[in-house]
């Protein structure tokens, strides 16, 4: 997303784009199943992120989905031939440039196509360091992957030039929105209450049959946390970077202290992942209540953090 804006003459770093879109979140959705495990998200879904940014910056962004793979591919070709950069949602499993061990059926992945060379598309993917190439057939398959969060060929592109933004105004709005999502969503599955809910679930994990199912469940949490993109704790670090950059851009230095606190929370998430991995590898005894306690501590920290964020934001507004 950041590079899409760069291309259109608005230099905006990835953390800034992430933060201004109010993309930081937590959601525990037991009814959405990924390989038989619940969906645990540490950020908003891709489309919401792009939309959040669109609202903030006043961009003209067009989204298109397609009913048939052929029309989706034809439309992508037309846009590329017109010199557009096109953002896509795609399923990871079908992308050949991904390391084989990471290719699970996970559909909420964003990438950017910037050109075409014969039957290969030139792809810029946040996961890969270097630009990748992807054959037409594979990309079509990935864009029309089925299952949970099916992309249905979703593509998006800018239709108007972005203008120079007013950082302070955008910043206050984005901070307020994130604090709202984390603290005041009326569902117990979203935000800080979602973390507490997950902690309760983990604490109640049954240990029958040697605890293999419990181990898979815990492993799944850590995988959702660390593997997808820059990962769950990684998103905390990214948001902290956003707070620092925003402080630098607007001169509102209170945000720097918040960034430091959020980095500590990210560290807690990583410690949780380490503790979980040790139990999976049987280096430590499997004790779900201990992990649950860890999650509850994180939830407490995050609640205090977002309350503080809210206070700092209100103090800024007036």
């Amino acid at each position: 997303m950041s590079s899409l804006l760069h291309h259109h003459g608005l230099p905006l770093s990835e953390p800034m784009a992430f933060g201004l879109a109010s993309a930081l979140a937590f959601a525990y959705l037991p009814c959405v199943r990924i390989n038989g495990q619940p969906l645990i998200a540490f950020r908003m879904p891709p489309r919401a992120i792009v939309k959040g940014l669109q609202r903030g910056l006043g961009l003209g962004i067009r989204f298109e989905t397609f009913s048939s793979p052929a029309s989706g591919t034809a439309r992508l070709d037309t846009l590329l031939d017109a010199g557009k950069l096109v953002g896509l949602q795609a399923g990871i499993f079908w992308l050949p440039y991904f390391p084989p061990d990471l290719r699970f059926h996970f559909n909420a992945h964003n990438l950017l196509v910037y050109g075409r060379d014969g039957d290969d598309y030139l792809v810029s993917d946040p996961v890969a360091e270097a630009p990748a190439r992807c054959a037409r057939k594979d990309l079509e398959k990935a864009r029309f992957a089925k299952g949970v969060l099916a992309p249905r060929g979703l593509l998006y592109y800018l239709t108007s030039q972005p203008s120079a933004p007013d950082w302070a105004r955008l910043g206050t709005r984005a901070l307020a929105r994130t604090a709202n999502i984390m603290l005041r969503t009326p569902l117990p599955l979203i935000g800080v209450r979602g973390i507490e809910m997950l902690a309760r679930r983990v604490g109640r994990l049954p240990l029958d049959g040697g605890g293999d199912r419990a181990r898979l469940y815990i492993g799944h949490i850590v995988r959702m946390q660390e593997e997808i993109g820059t990962g769950g704790a990684g998103f905390r670090f990214m948001y902290a970077t956003f707070l620092q950059e925003l402080a630098g851009k607007t001169g509102y230095t209170a945000l720097n202290a918040l960034a430091t606190r959020l980095v500590e929370i990210g560290d807690r998430w990583q410690e949780f992942a380490v503790a979980a991995a040790r139990m999976i590898r049987r280096r430590d005894a499997l004790t779900p209540p201990a992990l649950a306690e860890h999650l509850r501590a994180i939830a407490r920290d995050e609640r205090l953090f977002f309350q503080e964020l809210h206070r700092v934001q209100s103090a800024w507004a007036c």
Binding site: L102, H220, R223, E227
Partner: peptide, 8 residues
């Protein structure tokens, strides 16, 4: 840690 959970 990531390697452990992915391998799992």
């Amino acid at each position: 840690v990531e390697e452990i959970v992915t391998r799992q």
